[in-house]
């Protein structure tokens, strides 16, 4: 393997790791936010039903 191939390997590894980790956490955050919104909606629906009955 040529020396420059080691350089490409290191750059690719770091760039992919940093980018994927940041994007993955942003994705997880929005997924958790969606779950939080759904739970909140369900809670308020249950509260309304309880009040009506």
């Amino acid at each position: 393997m040529e020396p420059i191939h080691y350089v490409y390997m290191a750059y690719l590894l770091v760039i992919l790791s940093c980018e994927l980790y940041l994007f993955y956490n942003v994705y997880l955050y929005f997924k958790a936010q969606k779950i939080s919104e759904i739970t909140h909606e369900m809670d308020s629906q249950q509260n309304n039903e309880g009040r009506n009955s």
């Binding site: 940093c18 980790y21 940041l22 956490n25 942003v26 997880l28 955050y29 958790a32 936010q33 779950i35 939080s36 739970t39 809670d43």
Partner: peptide, 24 residues
Amino acid sequence: ILTYCTLKVRYLYLELKDQNEMKA
């Protein structure tokens, strides 16, 4: 700076996840 941003995003996600778990 990027590490600080990643730390903050990770923290916000973990905190939200914890809140969801507590609610559940």
